[in-house]
Design a binder for these strands. Sequence first.
DNA 1: AAAAAAATGTTCGTTTCTGTTCGGTTTCGC
DNA 2: GCGAAACCGAACAGAAACGAACATTTTTTT
Lengths: 253, 253
Amino acid sequence: MSQTFRHPEILEIARREGKVTVEGLAQHFGVTLQTIRRDLTDMAEAGRLERVHGGAVLPSSTTNIGYEERRALNPSAKAAIARACAAQIPNDISLFLNIGTSTEAVAQELLLHENLMVVTNNMNVANILVANPSCEVVVTGGHLRRSDGGLIGNLATDTIRQFKFDLAVIGCSALDRDGDLLDFDIQEVGVSRAILQQSRRTFLVADHSKFKRSAPARIASLSDIDAFFTDAPLPAALSQSCAIWKTAVSVSE
Amino acid sequence: MSQTFRHPEILEIARREGKVTVEGLAQHFGVTLQTIRRDLTDMAEAGRLERVHGGAVLPSSTTNIGYEERRALNPSAKAAIARACAAQIPNDISLFLNIGTSTEAVAQELLLHENLMVVTNNMNVANILVANPSCEVVVTGGHLRRSDGGLIGNLATDTIRQFKFDLAVIGCSALDRDGDLLDFDIQEVGVSRAILQQSRRTFLVADHSKFKRSAPARIASLSDIDAFFTDAPLPAALSQSCAIWKTAVSVSE
DNA sequence: AAAAAAATGTTCGTTTCTGTTCGGTTTCGC
DNA sequence: GCGAAACCGAACAGAAACGAACATTTTTTT
């Protein structure tokens, strides 16, 4: 409840001018710089503005800043995984790609494939594959998640149930030592499950950073996956399990 | 706070021009070349730009579909229509936007609206409205049409049937002298019909070029529309019809 | 009216940004 | 290929902006 009468007006000015300066606002309201700084920090914490040196700007249109950073994380490793995966994807099939930076990298590698029918719940994947003229792109419906361009919810699941895919390429948020695929978002898990159900074969793409993380929701087990593409050797125990499960493991680079 | 005032504006310029130069930016902002170089390296590290010798370009993955053509055709008229239309759209409603450059222009004008729930079968609209944090975006499923980023087919119609909208803003390919809304694509007509059925009110946006064209499939009549936003006076006969139909007509600049 | 809470002003040490210079690298015209 | 010009990043110093802590004023509560 730390609102002052200045906050709404600062917002209005920011909308009009595109930016506000500490100095300018201090003069405008007849208060000290420090007071304005406090205002701006409060408003930035509330997400109404984005703080910059000397003032503030409207929240960046690219809300998915965390996402951009993730995409930029280790692009070469991601690309290597994606290349290995794309090499195993034949032409002339129907294919699902779900949410995740890794699956986007796969989409990038599929630009030269032919006669694919790709269904996706990832806006970025659709945007990428639009550049492949011999590829039919179908987008599932769903609520658009700003953080990563994913389409989630019942609409997505319902759409997926209407298809049967030759192959699904999925990502996950984390992968634990027992070989369980985990995700942060319960809704997304429903979507992933539906995908696995509707697919004849399944590939998992995940870089080694996923080994270290954990997440609350369980999607499936590596035993349900036909091939796993990653960039670092698996722990010995898990590697053995994969052999038993007949899950092919491809370590790139 | 790892940003400066310049970053958002640089991004904006890059989006508009396709590229930015160190020299040009330095002049534009009145700072030294080195400062701009630092900006560009920062932004490149964050994945928002791609550095090239002498400047920077947009990252290749950020290819918004149809972005080029959108601004090509008489943008000022479209923007005027869109502004007039957006002014009639209240906050806090559910809203459908369909395919067409005109509806995309409306989306652009809705960036400052609040608490909208927007459903769309237009990828470009979704890409635009992602920038409005107080707007929930739902995408219908469908086959992606490359020419305009539209999502069409049964999937789209089915999704739409699951909603009831306070307002629908639609475009059309052509508008004949009898006041009939026409489209080139039969599938798209099915979608448009479904939209009209599920909406309490309906706005049509179409610039005057649509008057001269014709198209084979009939969507509906202007008599089914609550308000029509355009940029040139209607033929006298049609104007009279609209008065009888109680279809409001707004002619912008 | 007194006490408490909140907001604002003031000061000061620290961080961040910017311009300058310099040596190395890339690009471009020949 | 070769050399000049443009461009690049690193390093440094001065300036601007920052946040924390404390004092002061205003508002609210009791």
